[in-house]
Design a protein around this nucleic acid. Structure first.
Length: 483
RNA sequence: GGCGCCGUAGCCAAGUGGUAAGGCCGCAGACUGCAAAUCUGCCAUUCAUCGGUUCGAUUCCGAUCGGCGCCUCCA
């Protein structure tokens, strides 16, 4: 069974039903990182949104073929990787230096993704730009043959004037586009200032590849068109990225791909909003620039960050702050605690105040329906989470009154598992046994039995100092969790 | 100048032409040797302001104020 999903489409600026080109299969291309530094939490928000989209589509019963590029040749990469090299370094040395830098940050990037529950294995294709240079050259050649590209002094430019619908994604018209006043010194030869570069002529001190136009390297925009068309096809279902990529990057991708094929390339364009830090755009100069490593040093679980991001809608600005993370942690714990309660057999249940009897199985079905209605409506995660919390409250109340049956607990667990497949925040956790902790707990039990409160409290404080919070339950058992 | 977005309780955040989901915090209660943890209950006559349309608007329209984005590299 597949569930219908509706998504906002930047092209039409409306929420539209996703109708895969091939029934049951969705091709998804997302713009990946430029690997010259560690990803920051703003980058991560975008990748989390794309993961949410992918997981939702898969949970809805669709097969998702997801391609994300790794941009490993680009201005900043060249700047950072070449500065240690002597002027006489040859091309092989320059490529080697570039590869060392990008390999390092590519690995760091995947480490970060894994930490926020985006497994590398969830991607179908992870192409590196440098591995697709021939495809880019081929695509530029197609454009040139159609009169949509022209070479000037070793560089090749896209002729915007040749594509009437240029601007359709960003909703910019030719007249509305502010005419650039500053023209890069090396790009004075363009026919129009709006024409963008497809192939950059070789410059001393840069790594290069041979091409029909002489040595050089690909422009940034051509990478995505070439890799996306090669790996997912000349028509794909969804392309996504951060809002900042709408113009010019995605607009240019449309120009390149549709210029070459003569038909629509992407049906659904989906863009994720930015993240602000304490109300301001993240920047190094403001001192509010964070990577996942920074958060970890502050003791923040990357999964808590993931939850915080996903508790807001992807098309709204998210104002990151540490108080918000605290709230996220507490909210997440509520669901996790509930899961553990459902995994148990009702030993902590019953004895509560009388409440109106619920019909647990029907409530669970209702929650599932509400959850999916929200997710299917342009990934409305705040509302989807509300469906989960409402169920948690309802079933807690019922379980307080009289223990839920095994069947009801299992049904609740199935729902939690289903939602966890998307949110990745409340997986089943094996109760980890720690001999030292267990021994201290036993010692405290003995002290309590002897009514030696001082000793009992001392042990409790000792455990607290170790980051272990004890739970004295109603039935006399003692549980614990990490703070 | 052109094209857009946003303004909902202390904080975060959904939503609808018919009278405000959910989370956090806070308060009260249950439980406890006391706590913590956990659970329960309570917590916006009101949705930036002013007009208009309507039987009725937070939701539609207009204006105003405030915050922001894109039109150049940026997730």
């Amino acid at each position: 069974m597949t569930r219908p999903i509706r998504l906002f489409n930047t092209l039409t600026r409306r929420v539209e039903a996703l109708e895969p080109l091939s029934p049951g299969v969705v091709t998804l291309y997302t713009c990946g990182p430029t690997v010259y530094n560690f990803a920051h939490i703003g980058n991560l928000r975008t990748f989390l949104f794309q993961d949410l989209l992918k997981r939702t589509l898969r949970a809805a019963g669709l097969e998702v073929r997801h391609c994300m590029n790794i941009t490993d040749v680009e201005d900043k990469i060249i700047r950072d990787s070449q500065k240690e090299l002597p002027a006489e370094a040859d091309n092989a040395a320059r490529h080697g230096a570039m590869k060392r830098l990008t390999d390092q940050f590519t690995q760091a990037f995947f480490d970060d993704l894994e930490a926020v529950a985006i497994p590398q294995a969830s991607f179908t294709h992870l192409p590196r730009a440098t591995q697709y240079i021939p495809k880019m050259i081929e695509l530029i050649g197609r454009l040139e043959a159609k009169g949509l590209a022209y070479a000037r002094e070793g560089s090749v430019y896209y002729r915007i004037a040749g594509l009437p619908h240029y601007g359709c994604l960003a909703h910019l018209d030719r007249e509305g586009m502010k005419q650039g006043t500053s023209v890069d010194s090396d790009e004075y030869e363009r026919e129009s200032v709006s024409d963008f570069v497809l192939w950059k002529a070789f410059k001393p001190g840069e790594p290069s590849w041979d091409s029909p136009w002489g040595p050089g390297r690909p422009g940034w925009h051509i990478e995505c068109s070439a890799m996306g068309m090669e790996l997912l096809g000349e028509r794909i279902d969804i392309h996504s990225g951060g809002v900042d990529l709408i113009f010019p990057h995605h607009e240019n991708e449309i120009a390149q791909s549709e210029g070459a094929t003569g038909h629509t390339w992407v049906n659904h364009w989906v863009h994720g909003e930015f993240l602000l830090v304490e109300g301001e755009k993240m920047s190094k100069s403001l001192g509010n620039f964070y990577t996942l490593r920074d958060l970890r040093e502050k003791g923040i679980d990357p999964i808590t960050f993931r939850y915080a991001i996903q508790s807001n809608h992807y098309r709204k600005l998210y104002n990151f702050g540490f108080e918000g993370l605290k709230a996220a942690k507490n909210a997440l714990d509520r669901i996790r605690t509930f899961r553990k309660r459902m995994e148990g057999n009702g030993e902590t249940s019953g004895g509560g105040e009388w409440k109106e009897a619920l019909e647990p199985l029907r409530r669970i079905d209702q929650a599932r329906e509400d959850f999916w209605q929200a997710m299917a409506d342009d990934l409305n995660t705040p509302e989807a989470l509300a469906a989960i919390f409402t169920l948690v409250s309802d079933l807690n109340a019922q379980d307080d009154r009289a223990a839920l049956t095994r069947e009801e607990r299992d049904a609740a667990l199935a729902f939690l598992e289903e939602t966890n497949a998307i949110f990745a925040g409340w997986p089943h956790e094996e109760a980890s046994l720690d001999a030292e902790v267990e021994a201290l707990i036993e010692a405290r039990k003995a002290a309590k039995a002897a009514k030696n409160w001082a000793e009992s409290d001392r042990i409790r404080d000792e455990l607290k100092a170790m980051g272990i919070l004890l739970e004295d339950r109603k039935d006399g058992s003692v549980g614990w969790k990490k703070a």
